[in-house]
Design a protein around this nucleic acid. Structure first.
Lengths: 198, 198
DNA sequence: GTCTATACACTGATAGAC
DNA sequence: GTCTATCAGTGTATAGAC
């Protein structure tokens, strides 16, 4: 399949997808209109249904999938195991807190809103969210396994880390401050450090 | 101000508010229409703007406030300190997991979706969410203080518990299972038990 | 590939009768 | 207090020209 390229080298399809990711992260599924996506992406108006014949739901499903990959990759890249997993996790959450602040509290937890909106109303988007969360958890688990945790324990702990980060981001965006996540990361980090991998 | 009562003894205003709480918990703010609220509440069509002259936003703000009070009360009632705070927290999360399953994964985290949708788009709803979350955290902190934690430490730990529960519920609703929250509650509970209140 | 025009179902909100 | 009628706006989606 041929893909047209813009001057910036990103395909029109890609621009639409990227704008969808951003807007749904900030506002969720229902608050984000197709018109808004087109406007934000700078893509040609007529090409949305050409590239995404399934309309808004198909577009959102792909956006969720991409977000899952991007975030999982970010976990692998930024959750370094130097100085122990506990300290590394605290530093990782602090990094996220910085990014949330820089975004003006529009970014963070890019799956949460859509996941909650569609958990029982769109099987397709629910499935996409499941797969995306599974990727995040797998990325955490991979890092924990590398730090010496047995596979089962790594999986279990990864689920806790995923939830703690999600919950922390919700508080950050609500309170317009990065500090809740920083404090949560520090506390979980200390707890991890106090408990051996065993 | 006089308040009309229905046969069931609940005011029309109350029915509308209760329906709004339920629907926004399941779907969020933008997906919930006023028509849907009227239908679900069984309230007279003409009375919505009579009781809530500020329209949807005012109605939602009150629903958020009520939800905050209800959930904080539930924390105080169900987070018993018997057998240590760690075990009590694990039991508390298991209770929530049961309720989520019983609801068909429509209930749980009644503030999350609206909080995320409106964090940067509606100052009024953002403020309502802040106050609601503060009540939850205060309820947790109160229980921790009763268990022997110094005030500052209780506040900090309460923030972690709030975030962990929120994050766990997101996973439960996404995966259509109560187990993520049960596992998370057990892990946090164990960590708390291993660390003295100091 | 992209455009415009358009269909048609809502949405939240208001006015005025009863 | 409640109802109905109505408004203007927006939502997604489609058809057909270019």
């Amino acid at each position: 399949m041929e893909t047209a390229r813009t001057a910036a080298g990103r395909s029109t399809r890609d621009q639409i997808l990227a704008a969808t990711c951003d807007l749904m992260e900030a506002q969720g599924f229902h608050a984000t209109g197709l018109a808004e996506i087109i406007k934000a992406s700078g893509a040609p108006r007529g090409s949305l249904y050409y590239y995404f014949p399934d309309g808004k739901e198909g577009l959102a499903a792909e956006a969720i999938a991409r977000t899952g990959e991007v975030v999982a990759e970010r976990i692998r890249a930024n959750l370094t195991a130097d100085g122990g997993v506990g300290a590394a996790f605290a530093a990782f959450t602090a990094q996220i807190a910085d990014a949330i602040e820089r975004s003006g509290f529009r970014a963070g937890s890019p799956l949460t809103t859509v996941a909650m909106e569609t958990a029982t109303t769109s099987p397709r988007l629910n499935q996409a969210c499941r797969e995306a969360y599974s990727r995040l958890q797998a990325a955490f688990a991979e890092r924990l396994a590398m730090a010496g945790y047995p596979a089962a324990r790594a999986t279990e702990l990864a689920e806790l880390l995923t939830a703690a980060v999600e919950g922390g981001i919700i508080l950050c965006r609500t309170y317009h401050s990065g500090n809740p996540l920083r404090r949560i990361g520090a506390q979980i980090g200390a707890m991890i450090s106090a408990m051996p991998p065993t």
